[in-house]
Design a binder for these strands. Structure first.
Lengths: 125, 125
DNA sequence: TAATAAATTTAGAATTATTCTAAAAGGTGT
DNA sequence: ACACCTTTTAGAATAATTCTAAATTTATTA
């Protein structure tokens, strides 16, 4: 693992805030002001391919990067905010119903987050 | 529903091939050679907001548009090919486990499709 | 029907996330 | 120290999508 690979891995795992490449770049620049965005993308891709981190692609906003530990996501349809949830593990029943081996699965649940719900109410009064 | 809205809705539902905006544009041009790509995007967005069609965002390739009827997707990690599957309906148990209402959910299962598996084998001989 | 208003479409520019490229820098083993 | 391989860099290139402002179409009202 190279210096930057390790740093980026740690940022993704420490700040479990579903950061974009650009946010990771900003974070990394605090300690390494000369790092370039291309390096961030290179290493994010490497880490994803190695399965050490996980890419979460979002409609209408740049990809987020997340720790690889199994968990699911609750996504606000209005503001796009991502929240971690832990729904029951579907691996066994997926394997059974598909009759086929698979690598991973991704479950996103869409809703309107409490804040956005409040805003709508306020706006409609 | 405007002319183009209806046409686009029909293309998405008739050609259940998970088309990209650009593919829909090509298809639509066959009957309406003067239509513009912006119109396609406008109407796809409107149809998505109305819940009449469904956007499927894919890592590393443009968004696909799909009929809105509930179904899940099997995605090849190598070539990106999308296949429809119908896994058990999770609505009830999600609602219960979340203790919260939600709008929809999206389940993607990643695997290596038979074709890509074959290619790898051939390459490694 | 004419006049006005509202919505839709168009073409092309703008934006933006991401990848590519080629050169520079770093590190490793002999 | 020298050749070799990997990583990093900066900036250009690419490509999907949105934006803008004008033009056209559709709907509404007098």
């Amino acid at each position: 693992m190279t210096k930057y690979e390790k740093q980026i891995y740690e940022i993704v795992n420490k700040l479990t805030g579903h950061l974009t490449a650009d946010q990771i770049f900003s974070e990394l620049k605090k300690s390494y002001p000369s790092v370039s965005l291309a390096t961030v993308y290179n290493n994010l891709n490497k880490l994803c391919e190695a399965g050490l981190i996980r890419r979460v692609s979002m409609e209408g906003s740049p990809d987020r990067y997340d720790r690889s530990a199994k968990h699911d996501h609750l996504v606000c349809r209005r503001c796009g905010k991502l929240t971690d949830i832990c729904f029951e593990d579907l691996t066994a029943s997926l394997k059974q119903q598909l009759g086929e081996d698979f690598l991973a699965y991704d479950l996103k649940v869409y809703y309107i987050c409490p804040e956005c719900r409040r805003k709508t109410q306020a706006a409609s009064i």
